[in-house]
Write a protein that binds this DNA or RNA. Structure first.
Lengths: 204, 204
DNA sequence: GAAATTAAACGACCGTTGGTCGAAAAAGTT
DNA sequence: AACTTTTTCGACCAACGGTCGTTTAATTTC
């Protein structure tokens, strides 16, 4: 199922290789070989190896990110619920990625974290304004009480991304769950909502 | 002021070089040259380039970390205050590191983040049990109300480390301050303490 | 359709890298 | 002094990311 454009072919190749190897163990020649093109051609479409990785990340995240943004505009849903849905979307994105990448490698791959770092940056940067906007709407309509909407958005995104990726600060599964529950509780108390209002999207 | 052991000399050399270059631009030969020894000798003391970096991180963090741990046992100080002091200690550690490393490089160095990642892991892992313990003490004596002490500790450490390093998710200075203020506020509300109780250690 | 121009593809090649190795020097032991 | 062990070393290796001049394919222009 080859993609249309040439640069997509290259990204496909990298994606394939990433399933069973870490980036630093994948050579540009290898990517070229897998894509079925010459090594030099890679540099016609991308300025560096790093740029290929960046492009792949963006491609992978573009669609779920768009739906998250779209969700932000559904003003008929309560802001608090929409915040919860972004919450959930984060989970799905991270989960999808994780399933995609940890088939062979256990979890000790330090170098792999290099990749997660880029995801973290991309996800927080893209989603922070969206989530901030939703929180502000919640504050205006009185369902959320908090003085630092942007900060709240960032805190949520950082903690969620890091804990759900579980690579930058590895923990056992139950520890991850515990931290998420703690975050939910902290959010509920911090936004002056009753305990359990965010909990309907519990650990699945 | 050369250090005593040979492996310390090597770490000194790397530290010196790190002031003006990122790790990936520092070759092992360069470290050897700066340390005044042959390249082969490096591999007598360290199994890989990566291991040198790990050792340097541990050496840099060992002392402040010990004082933080020591602080955890000062049971005559209120748990809430001690939590604030750990808070502050985090700041100092990160600040010290940041001052040490960003003299020449602006902030755009993506590869540098590779290093911060290791700091994040080390700092959270080491400090989480300490901070959790303090929070538990606070819960017992009634000055902190929260159901997930370990989660709270982790959330605080993750957000603080990431925001204070300001490399993994770069922001402007005022944004960093805003996020910290937000975190403080969230903590105060989450632990059912009055607004301002953590604020005496405001942005300095 | 031919000529000219631009886009795309290529792989040999370059400088440098992290890491190995066997030999030699230094230190320690008997 | 003879022998063993620890330490030091730099030539060497395979492999890397990236460049380059050149070739091939596609497009435009007349």
């Amino acid at each position: 199922m080859p993609s249309s454009t040439k640069s997509d072919q290259i990204l496909d190749a990298l994606q394939t290789l990433l399933v069973e190897k870490k980036i630093q163990d994948i050579s540009v020649s290898e990517i070229a070989q897998t894509a079925g093109i010459g090594k030099g051609s890679i540099y016609y479409y991308f300025p560096s190896k790093d740029a290929i990785l960046d492009a792949l990340i963006e491609r992978n995240y573009k669609q779920p990110m768009e739906t998250a943004k779209h969700l932000a505009e559904q003003k008929d849903i309560s802001p608090f619920t929409r915040m919860a849905m972004i919450f959930q979307a984060c989970r799905n994105i991270s989960g999808e990625f994780h399933a995609q990448n940890s088939k062979t490698a256990p979890t000790d791959d330090k170098e792999q974290a290099f990749l997660h770092q880029k995801y973290l940056h991309y996800l927080v940067t893209e989603l922070k304004p969206v989530l901030t906007d939703i929180i502000c709407q919640g504050i205006e309509c009185g369902s959320i009480h908090f003085d630092y909407p942007a900060a709240l958005a960032e805190i949520v995104l950082i903690v969620l991304t890091i804990k759900l990726d579980n690579t930058l600060v590895p923990s056992s599964e139950s520890e991850v769950d515990n931290t998420i529950l703690g975050l939910i509780s902290l959010l509920e108390k911090g936004t002056e909502n009753p305990a359990g209002s965010l909990n309907f999207l519990k650990i699945g």
